[in-house]
């Protein structure tokens, strides 16, 4: 409902992990996609992501997210397949475009990697409030607060901006701009003038945010300002161990 990059209330085991553990987990789930070229392993990682989403009470959302990825990936896949000419031909399309076995396999790997490597980030953001992320970035990873704030603000603003963009498109459709056209290029062309209202409203929102932060002592904040204490528990140890195992397994080359 609030875009796919927002925090979802909950108190699942995943929610209760140390924020740092969740960040490590998200990296560890991403890594195998690049360490290994095995289709099955990456499919496994996607399945694992889905299970984790489900355990955090976000199964429905995970599936919608995945479906939107699948749609996007399908386009990517077709493009890739059409452009790769090397390898064993499977069949030839009418204008003389050759579809090869290698092309299909490579493109499949490409989109699987794309999906598997994006999901852990979405997963992490849905079970971790951005405030927690920024707290551990500042305290444990010693990133200056200003940079952490930029990251968390960006994450927080994405759903606001996408809502704004939808609102703008709605307003333009209502005055006869043909956003309901099937022609993709035309749609893009129609979108261009709308960058102006989006930009204006974004600048306004950011300015307001800056004022609000300034008046609540943003400039006084130090590394140790964070109030919340996060403690590592048995679950954290387990998860980190599992992460290490996943990385080791995928890097070992046991799988072809």
């Amino acid at each position: 409902m609030n875009g796919f990059l927002g925090y979802v209330n909950g108190s699942s085991p995943l929610h209760n992990l140390h924020p740092l553990t969740k960040m490590i987990m998200s990296v560890a789930l991403c890594a195998p996609c690049f360490l290994s070229g095995n289709h099955l392993l990456i499919l496994g990682i996607i399945a694992l992501n889905l299970c984790l989403f489900a355990s955090a009470g976000g199964a429905g959302r995970a599936i919608t997210t995945l479906l939107s990825f699948v749609k996007f990936s399908a386009v990517l896949f077709v493009l890739q397949v059409l452009f790769i000419r090397d390898g064993t031909p499977i069949f030839t399309l009418p204008p003389g475009i050759v579809v090869t076995r290698e092309g299909v396999m490579f493109s499949l790997l490409f989109v699987l990697r794309f999906m598997a490597s994006t999901m852990p980030l979405a997963l992490m953001l849905s079970v971790t409030p951005v405030g927690d992320i920024s707290n551990v970035l500042v305290r444990n990873l010693r990133i200056p607060y200003k940079y952490a704030f930029v990251i968390t603000t960006a994450v927080r603003f994405i759903p606001l901006f996408s809502e704004e963009m939808l609102g703008i498109m709605e307003a333009q459709t209502a005055r006869g701009v043909e956003f309901d056209t099937k022609n993709f290029i035309k749609k893009i062309r129609l979108l261009v003038p709308l960058c102006v209202p989006l930009l204006v409203s974004s600048v306004r929102k950011i300015e307001n945010s800056a004022i609000s932060a300034e008046l609540r002592g943003f400039n006084l904040r130090t590394r140790l300002s964070g109030y919340k204490q996060y403690s590592f528990g048995a679950n954290d140890v387990l998860v980190i161990a599992a992460c290490a195992a996943i990385i080791a397994f995928s890097a070992s080359g046991i799988l072809p």
Partner: peptide
Amino acid sequence: IKTSAIASFTGFLFQNPDRQICQN
């Protein structure tokens, strides 16, 4: 019927005018 076609005889004023205004 397409929404953009309905728009030829309807007008919709949104609560926030900034979503509509896109010219300088």
